[in-house]
């Protein structure tokens, strides 16, 4: 057993887990955060994507012990109370989901993608960057639309903030 402690969605958590416990199982079964999904369990599908220290990672391929000491954000940590995160709002607006199983991973991947491309995104980049996330319903078209729309919304909001700061 290992003592692990980390900050999950802004809340300090700790506990004893078997060393072989995967981060996704720690989140789902120990913390009850079942928004993070296990899809393929073979590191291909990206349904389990969370942010670790600000970067998108596959929580099904990381041990909770490896993640100890880090800061984790899951799909539950994105919205600000009742206000959806711009990426969540865009997925809703553009119907970027059908069954919704891949959606948490898609949204966590998209927020990371937008962070890494402050210069903006184009369709080809979004499609290439979604390499690690599989959707078996929609054919990606509306997912790509949603990510592009969210990227634009967030760029505008970012500029607004920068002006205020100046």
């Amino acid at each position: 057993m290992s003592e692990v402690s980390m900050v999950v969605n802004g809340r300090k958590v700790s506990g004893a887990v078997e060393d072989r416990t995967l981060l996704v199982h720690y989140l789902r079964e120990h913390l009850g955060l079942t928004g993070t999904h296990v899809g393929c369990d073979t590191s291909q599908c990206g349904a389990c994507v969370v942010h670790m220290d600000g970067k998108a990672v596959k929580s099904c391929s990381i041990l909770a012990a490896q993640a100890s000491g880090s800061e984790i954000v899951t799909i539950e940590g994105l919205a600000n109370g009742a206000d959806l995160h711009p990426v969540q709002a865009a997925f809703k607006e553009h119907h970027g989901l059908q069954c919704g199983f891949c959606t948490p991973g898609m949204i966590m991947a998209a927020t990371d993608m937008i962070r890494r491309h402050p210069e903006g995104l184009d369709e080809a980049t979004v499609r290439a960057e979604l390499e690690g996330n599989i959707c078996r319903c929609t054919g990606y078209h509306n997912i790509v639309k949603a990510v592009l729309a969210a990227s634009k919304t967030m760029a505008k909001a970012g500029k607004g903030k920068a002006r205020k700061a100046a």
Partner: peptide
């Protein structure tokens, strides 16, 4: 290599 999430690790 791999995908963005794999490249982060």
């Amino acid at each position: 290599i791999g995908d963005p999430h794999v490249r982060h690790m």
